[in-house]
Design a protein around this nucleic acid. Structure first.
Lengths: 217, 217
DNA sequence: TAGATTGTTAATCGATTAACAATC
DNA sequence: TAGATTGTTAATCGATTAACAATC
């Protein structure tokens, strides 16, 4: 498996993450019909260093114009390609509890063209209901749904105790990518992509930074 | 401002993040009254390499026992200190919409002793209601609430357009740490800690990895 | 004891930053 | 033109990993 982009270079993960924020700035500029954007401008808006933005943008293969910067539309297209926009697909969410229902309603994904089309749960209070305009269906029907709707991304917002089991089921019916919000490391076969999120690790960082400041005041 | 831990070494941020997951394993072990845990055991459960765990644990200052590993209780205490457990405080959440209401109900923070005590919003459909047993109060009363409840952490789950404004208000009344889920970089004075979360960056990584796999199959 | 595991120093790897020439 | 900005190579920085001696 290669990790190469169009230029034959591997794109660092931190760069990929920042690209999500470049897209946001670019969308704003495009809406205002601004044609050019410089790395200085990016840096100012995102509290980054121009040099870092410049380095990141080299991975797009787009060349800028000294004194002007980069063509907004062209750059957007290139970043979208790197982020895999072209192959993106719909998602199914499993576990429509607290965090799950939030993701169902989170508007922030729209700009990335990401849509959760249906949710599964076993809680009788939820099954049959609609959360943020998305149906909640019983987990028993997981396999049927995935096949019928042709989704290829699964979002796991289930308790840790059942995370692996559900991941196995998702994989057995052809899901290729799992966005896992359960605090467990999933074991998956080669070729299956897991993106692990851990809200608590952010909390740990916040706490730690806070205590360091307090120590010195 | 020093970034040093008890040993006079600065603890790398990736290590801090992993420590949140070590705590989870330790809590499980403690509950089962297991006395020792080895770096091998950590590694197996978290899909890490033993050498990395060992390196991380050096920052705790705790020494292990060859053939046994580390004392579960002792290690937990040390990690909690590094994570700033001692100075932790309650939080107020601003923006009780999709993501905000999820955080209000998210059980995963309990194990870190983190509690959101109240929420603010301006939406008349939400103000006065209770979400996951937490009151939603009108944003006008933000200042009063913060002072009365003595919270020192603010969680921002508001639209990008009002993020900075609310952050300024929080800071002006003594909030020291902001956990920011709005997709904007906040400008804050020295001494104020901002922990920025960006759900979309995880999505970008997932998409990118997926497209790389598909390219090669 | 034997050997699994720790602890530490050094090597490697990868990302960020600096320096500076090229260019519009 | 002058100079802001790009593009690229090299230096730096920081985290991970390897190697191996120490130890219970």
């Amino acid at each position: 498996m290669s990790k190469d982009n169009i230029l034959g270079q591997s794109v660092p993960l931190p760069t990929i993450r920042r690209m999500a924020s470049y897209i946001r700035v670019l969308q704003k500029f495009k809406k205002q019909n601004i044609r050019w954007i410089s790395t200085t401008e990016f840096a100012k808006r995102l509290s980054l260093k121009p040099i870092q933005v410049r380095k990141d943008l080299t991975f797009t293969g787009i060349t800028g114009k000294p004194r002007f910067g980069f063509d907004v539309v062209e750059l957007m297209g290139a970043i979208e390609t790197i982020l895999g926009w072209d192959n993106r697909s719909e998602a199914i969410l499993i576990g429509a509890g607290g965090l799950g229902s939030a993701l169902l309603g989170y508007k922030g994904f729209d700009r990335y063209g990401f849509h959760i089309v249906v949710a599964c749960d076993i809680n009788p209070d939820l099954v049959g209901k609609t959360i943020h305009d998305k149906q909640v269906v019983h987990l028993d029907r997981l396999e049927v749904l995935v096949k019928r709707l042709g989704v290829s991304i699964g979002i796991l917002t289930v308790p840790a105790s059942v995370g692996q089991e559900i991941a196995d089921r998702l994989i057995s019916i052809g899901i290729k990518g799992i966005w896992n919000f359960s605090p467990i490391k999933l074991k998956v076969p080669e070729g299956i992509i897991v993106q692990q999120e851990d809200l608590s690790s952010g909390l740990a960082v916040l706490y730690n930074k806070l205590s360091r400041v307090q120590e010195n005041s």
